[in-house]
């Protein structure tokens, strides 16, 4: 089976004036197959979010390649990149700031459809459909981000990510800004979507319990490198690297 995401030797180095270069992501390679859920865990500042941004090409890659659905998107620009965004979408950590404060949630959800040239009436119909799919009523289409709660906003963000039917959903700590009960509901929603839409996930998280219940495989990141890789149970119950042991000890 062909992997949906193929990352090899991915490196990102930040150059700052007067400071030594900082390598946030260092020679990261992994594969992600269709229908699979891969978790990325690691402490704050280990490069998880930078990796997510690189995969969405929100940052430019220093070295290495990213292949998405067989297509090399490492250097993709403009049209080519918009094409890639039909396959990969992202859910952000803070739901409230991931929507334009001056635009309604419906506007935000329908934006990718609008850019894809979908007519206004069709767009409105799809937005309602997406909201309902994510457990929100259609009245939310007319609300502004500051008028809804964090959980509701994150549901809207998931609806937005699903609008153009991507194959891979990148969740960058999508639940960490929410309280525990809401977190649970969002996880249920993500699981449901996995069944129904045959989505693959790259699930960035520092909550190992969530990773354990949700992911098939786990990558452990430390200082920009992947230090351990394996099935979730394998990594959690039989950690190999020292860092993973420390990480597990600090939680359990």
């Amino acid at each position: 089976m062909e992997p949906i995401l193929q990352v090899s030797g991915l490196t990102k180095t930040f150059h700052a004036n007067g400071k030594p270069d900082f390598t946030a992501v260092d020679q990261v390679s992994f594969l992600l197959y269709p229908g699979e859920t891969v978790g990325i865990v690691g402490e704050s500042g280990c490069g998880k979010s930078t990796l997510a941004k690189l995969l969405c090409r929100l940052l430019d890659v220093t070295e290495g390649t990213i292949r998405l659905c067989g297509q090399d998107i490492t250097k993709a620009r403009d049209r080519e990149l918009f094409g890639a965004y039909r396959n990969i979408q992202m859910v952000f950590q803070d739901p409230l700031t991931s929507f334009d404060p001056r635009r309604t949630l419906g506007d935000g959800i329908g934006e990718s459809l609008r850019n894809a040239g979908v007519s206004k009436t069709e767009r409105e119909r799809r937005v309602v459909e997406l909201l309902e799919q994510c457990g929100l009523s259609e009245t939310f289409a007319g609300r502004y981000p500051h008028e809804v709660s964090g959980g509701q906003c994150q549901r809207a963000a998931i609806a937005r990510a699903l609008a153009i039917k991507p194959k891979l959903l990148l969740c960058d700590e999508a639940t960490s800004a929410l309280d525990v009960t809401v977190q649970q509901q969002i996880m249920e929603l993500l699981k449901e979507l996995r069944e129904k839409e045959k989505l693959s996930y790259l699930f960035i998280c520092h909550n190992l319990a969530l990773v354990q219940s949700f992911c098939d495989r786990v990558l452990v990141m430390h200082e920009g490198k992947i230090v351990e890789e394996g099935t979730t149970d394998q990594v959690i119950f039989y950690p190999q690297s020292d860092y993973t042991k420390i990480l597990l000890d600090s939680i359990l």
């Binding site: 969405c56 918009f82 992202m90 929507f99 334009d100 635009r103 935000g108 990718s112 850019n115 937005r160």
Partner: peptide
């Protein structure tokens, strides 16, 4: 993040400036 989200929604720079930044 909402600018990144707009980019992922397929907005070009012009659209991001006109639709999201200027307002």
């Amino acid at each position: 993040p909402f600018i990144s989200a707009a980019r992922l929604s397929g907005c070009g720079s012009n659209q991001i400036i006109l639709r999201h930044i200027l307002p």
